[in-house]
Amino acid sequence: MVRFALTVVRHGETRYNKDKILQGQGVDEPLSATGFRQAGAAGIFLSNVKFTHVFSSDLLRAKQTASTIIEKNKFCKDIVIQYDARLRERKYGIAEGRPLNDLKAMAKAAGEQCPLFTPSGGETLDEVRARAKDFFEFLCQLSIEEYQKEQAVQDMVGNGLETLEGRPVFPLRNHCSGIELNSDTDRAGKMLNANILVVSHGAYMRNWFGYFVLDLKCTLPSTLKKSQLSSVSPNTGVSHFIINFENGDMNKPEINCTCLNQNDHLADMNTEKV
């Protein structure tokens, strides 16, 4: 069985986020001071997780968030962050750089609901979902290749060509339920072929998670409310998934969500006077 963990984090706050101005792809704002603090808090929250791969949108706010998270990590300070345009925010066309209320007014004038409305020059939800699906299939293929590499090494060991103590189990703390995965118990069942961090954007993530739930029948935490599924992640909100698929069959992934858009790591920040 191929098995990998996927942690998805929204970027930290920017000045435009605070002012409720659409950024999309055309406005490449840096993180605000608050955004850097949020990213640092997320980094501390994830500091005990040994990621094997890190991917980020190539927009500045996501790149700065990913870099800050990795700087706080105990295991991955030297890991190479890979930037991918497929992780960019939804493109909002003529609405980019304008207040969110302008987009709502455009949607109302067109007789459509705001989340479903596509402004001139923007991406449809189907187009965003196609990008997310393509990227997820890329991650699945990556994990299959890691699995195949491990199998090849095991074959070499079996043929007496190499000695190996065994593939490490990457430390992963499930912050949502407090369960630690390690080599002490049920080693085979908890082994990961990859442990992947992705930093992206709110509207993109909502669409991606919708694809997981509606198309791939992702299992959700019993405590999750429907309103949480349809809402945009808060800045540096953390979502975590475990993906399994039998015999490398990417058409039948089994996806389990352990937490969605969690931001408990910001609790102390929210009490600060800034």
Results as ranks from 00 to 15, higher is better:
Y83R: 02
E180G: 07
M106P: 00
L229W: 08
F55R: 05
D126N: 14
K91Y: 08
L6E: 05
S222C: 11
D249I: 08
K252N: 15
L116P: 01
Q154R: 15
R61P: 04
E150K: 12
A62I: 07
D19I: 02
V169E: 10
D78V: 09
I81H: 04
E150G: 15
N17E: 05
R10Q: 01
R61S: 06
A194F: 06
G189K: 08
E13S: 07
E150W: 14
I179T: 14
T185A: 12
D28Q: 00
A42H: 01
N235L: 04
S227P: 05
I79C: 06
H201R: 09
V274W: 13
I69K: 08
D249M: 08
D268S: 12
I21C: 06
G210E: 00
T52V: 00
N251V: 08
N159D: 14
K63H: 09
L229D: 09
K252A: 15
E89T: 01
I242L: 13
V54F: 00
Y92E: 00
N207P: 06
E272D: 10
L181Q: 09
N193G: 08
N195T: 02
F45N: 09
L87R: 00
A105W: 08
L6M: 04
I243H: 04
K190M: 09
V128N: 05
M250E: 10
L260M: 07
F209T: 03
G40Q: 12
N174M: 07
G12Q: 02
Y147R: 15
A39E: 01
Q64H: 08
R129W: 00
F117C: 02
D215A: 11
S200F: 10
G122N: 02
N256H: 11
G210R: 06
Q148N: 12
L100E: 13
I70D: 04
I69V: 10
V157E: 08
C218N: 07
T7P: 06
E71Q: 13
Q25T: 15
E145M: 15
L142M: 12
G97R: 06
L60R: 14
G160Y: 05
F209P: 02
P168W: 03
G158N: 14
W208E: 00
T52N: 10
F209V: 08
Y147F: 15
E162P: 01
K74F: 10
